[in-house]
Every structure is written in C-alpha cells, then in structure tokens.
C-alpha cells in the first residue's frame, strides 16, 4: 500500500489538482441548491436549467463585451455580470409567480412544479441559443497556463481552472459563512432554515426571506454555469446532467449545510479524478458511492442534524 503511494505520488498530486478544479464547480452549483432547499424546503429541479442559462448568458455577455471592443480581461467580470443578471431576473420571477403559489402544499407538488419549469426552460434555451455548441473561452485563454512539474517534465494546467474556479468557490464558501453568521439577513435565513414555525412566529417575514434566498440560489446556479462556460462548450442537455450530481451532493452534505456541501464537493471532485487515473470505469458512479457510504453511516448527511419527529 505504502509502496503504491510512493510509486504513484506524482500522479496522485496531479489528481489532487484536477480534483480541486472540479470540486470548485460542483460546490458552486450544489451550495445554491442546498441553500434553497434549506430555506424553502423545495428540491429545485430547475436549478440545473438556471445553471445552463447562466452558462449561455455568460457566453453571450462575453461575446457582447468583445463586440464593444473591450479588452480580454473584461471577459472575467462578464461571467459574474451574466450570473447576476440571470439570477436577478429569473429568480424573483420564478419565486413570485410560481413557487409562491405552492408553498405549504404537498412536497411532491413542489417538486413537480420545478420539474415542469425544468422542462419548459430546456426548450426556452433552445429557442434563444439554438442547438449548435456555444463557446466563448477568452477568460480561460486570457489567464494562460501554469506549468506543474511532473516526472522531469511539466504538465500545463490552465490558470483559470487551477486558481479561478477553486478561488471563487472558496470566496463563496467564506463569504456565505460570514453572511449567514454575521449579518442580520443571514441570521434570519438561518433561523428560517432551523425552525420555520418558530421563526415566523417571532415575526420574521418569511416571504421576503424566501424571495431573497431563491434569488441568491439562482445567482449561485447561474454563476456555476457561467464559470463553467470558458472551458467547455454549451449545448442543450447540460442542465439535466448537472442537477443530478448536485442532488447527490446536497443529500450527502446534509440539508442546508454550506460546509457540508464544500466537503462533499471536495470528496466527489477528488474521488472522480483519482478514479480517472486508476480505475476510469468507476468515475461516473463515484459520487453515488460516496453518497451511499456517507448516508449508511450518517443517515442525516455529513453535517445534518437529526430532526425531531412530530408526534
């Protein structure tokens, strides 16, 4: 075993870097879903659609900026602007006109409403952006590559994937922790997450909290999509694939647990990249194996707390 590690330490090092990059993206998407679930108690299937729309919008804004003649660095803020736009426009629209009408209804109806939205948004994407792959990779190319030494040679990584993706994830993680613990709005959100009835009884305006949280979750989903856009092509169908993985992260992490989502994303990111190096056929099932393993030991998720059962 020890020998195996020695022989493969170089490869494991590379796998660690790969894992970090993909964990950053997984975290960003999952944390928004987790936040929304924690507060609204709705599993938002349309989260994946917001991710896809964020990606498309980022490419569009980037192309628009380029057409204005803005320099290459502008494509970096373009990603964030696009994500904010998508979240601020679609988030309140969906919350106000659709979700608000089904609060307090059966869980299955809430789930299906977002499933319906997901179906509708899939076709909306096609109507707006067509079906040909959309790409805008200026942000990735602008930052260039970073050479990591390996076996007497170098392996180039894109600086974008090595630094920007985990970096943004870290900022969101720390920022969210600060926001939820140190600001009034944040504490209100935590209060609603922990005990909705008590919180509303104390005079918290749940409606405002819901609107705010959903919009914030939508921005995070769109940000995940936007940040993924410089490295990949955006095609129909990226939403459904993203959302399933995020579900696994949320259930593994424990409800509404930001740190749990971060740790789970890290485990899944690393697990998948190590699988690609040593047992590629296992890559797709790694997230689910991790999830099942965690839930067998901790049925409430990594960081979840046991809920008191109603009598």
């Amino acid at each position: 075993m020890a020998e195996w590690f020695q022989d493969n330490s170089g490869l494991l090092g590379l796998a660690l870097l790969d894992g970090l990059a993909s964990a950053g993206l997984i975290f960003l998407v999952a944390v928004g879903l987790n936040l929304v679930f924690g507060v609204l108690r709705i599993v938002n299937v349309a989260h994946g659609s917001l991710y896809a729309i964020g990606a498309y919008a980022a490419a569009s804004v980037g192309i628009f900026f380029a057409s204005l003649g803005l320099p290459a660095w502008a494509s970096l803020p373009a990603l964030f602007i696009a994500a904010a736009l998508v979240g601020v426009v679609l988030g309140p629209l969906i919350e106000r006109f659709i979700l608000r009408r089904i609060y307090g209804q059966e869980e299955v109806l809430q789930l299906l409403v977002t499933f319906a939205l997901f179906m509708i948004l899939e076709d909306v994407q096609k109507l707006i952006w067509g079906v040909q792959p959309v790409q805008h990779d200026v942000a990735m190319r602008y930052l260039g590559t970073f050479d990591v030494p390996f076996a007497g040679d170098v392996v180039p990584f894109t600086a974008y994937q090595l630094f920007v993706l985990p970096g943004v994830a870290l900022v969101v993680l720390v920022g969210l922790a600060w926001f939820l613990r140190r600001t009034l709005t944040g504490r209100v959100i935590v209060a609603v997450t922990t005990d909705r009835e008590a919180a509303t009884a104390m005079g918290i305006d749940a409606r405002r909290v819901f609107l705010l949280t959903f919009t914030f979750g939508a921005i995070l989903a769109a940000l995940g999509g936007a940040l993924s856009s410089p490295t990949g092509a955006i095609v129909p169908g990226i939403g459904p694939q993203t959302i399933v993985l995020s579900f696994a992260v949320v259930a593994t992490a424990g409800l509404g647990q930001t740190e749990g989502a971060a740790l789970t994303a890290l485990m899944i990111g690393l697990g998948r990249s190590i699988a690609v190096y040593f047992e590629p056929e296992l890559e797709v099932v790694v997230p689910y194996i991790i999830m099942l393993a965690v839930l067998l030991v901790r049925p409430q998720g990594l960081f979840g707390t046991t809920t008191t059962r109603r009598i």
Binding site: L14, A15, L17, D18, G19, A21, S22, L25, V155, F157, Q161, S228, T231, G232, V235, G237, I238, Q241, T242, R272, S273, V276, Y277
Partner: peptide, 11 residues
C-alpha cells in the same frame, strides 16, 4: 456530454 475534461487531459 461531460462538461469538462480537466482530469482526462492531465492524464
């Protein structure tokens, strides 16, 4: 439909 090939390319 994998969105990213970071690990595969490193490999």
């Amino acid at each position: 439909g994998a969105p990213d090939y970071t690990t595969e390319i490193t490999r």
